[in-house]
Write a protein that binds this DNA or RNA. Structure first.
Lengths: 103, 103
DNA sequence: AGGGCATATGCCTTGACAGGAATATGCCTG
DNA sequence: CAGGCATATTCCTGTCAAGGCATATGCCCT
């Protein structure tokens, strides 16, 4: 993960690729078709995603099947974590309320 | 929030500003000093952050005191949510267990 | 009102990156 | 091994954003 995860996610097409791969692993051609972008564009984005660790691929004959890898997502989530209490404070209160109801 | 939250977070200096504001609200000059960047640079980043909703500011005499605003963070967290099960599968199992205990 | 501090803005240059078109690589099948 | 499909790479060009420097704006104080 030599490159910045946030910089990688800044590209909308790359997020679209990830959203697609989240549902099902896919070949390059499938992604290009579904997303309506050219094959070289998809390949280039996949390279960035791969070098950042967001995706991995296996080879199946002439096809390359890409799939999500979780680790960089964890990193992003980890950066986000210290901010989370900012908007969950009231939810925390709700949870405490529900907890007290449970007793 | 006209601009893309991920594009805003792609800039390391902006994340540093947010990390600083997360600890304490600060003036522009304080941020510039702490982060070691020029005042115009900080002001420009703050503008981007402000227009994306990540920060808000109030005026105190000649100073402008910036603080975090939670909403765009929620949006990022929301995008991340469908990926979270990728690395919390065992926690999901725990949650299902707890759910069943509640019955 | 004027001077000084804090912040914002404008201009300019530079570097990074995305996409198109063409081409290279790899693998399979006949 | 030749041809064809799927994918990767290269080259090129246009766009955009970041930072330095200079300057404008806003606010306070005397």
């Amino acid at each position: 993960m030599t490159v910045d995860a946030f910089a990688v996610l800044a590209e909308p097409t790359r997020r679209a690729i990830l959203d697609q791969l989240r549902r099902a692993e896919s070949s390059v051609g499938q992604l290009a078709g579904t997303l309506g972008v050219s094959q070289p564009t998809v390949s280039k984005h996949l390279r960035v995603l791969r070098e950042a660790g967001f995706v991995a691929c296996r080879t199946s004959a002439q096809h390359r099947i890409y799939r999500i890898d979780a680790r960089p997502f964890q990193a992003v989530d980890g950066w986000l974590a210290p901010y989370r209490h900012l908007w969950t404070t009231h939810l925390d209160a709700l949870e405490r309320h529900l907890d007290s109801q449970e007793q």
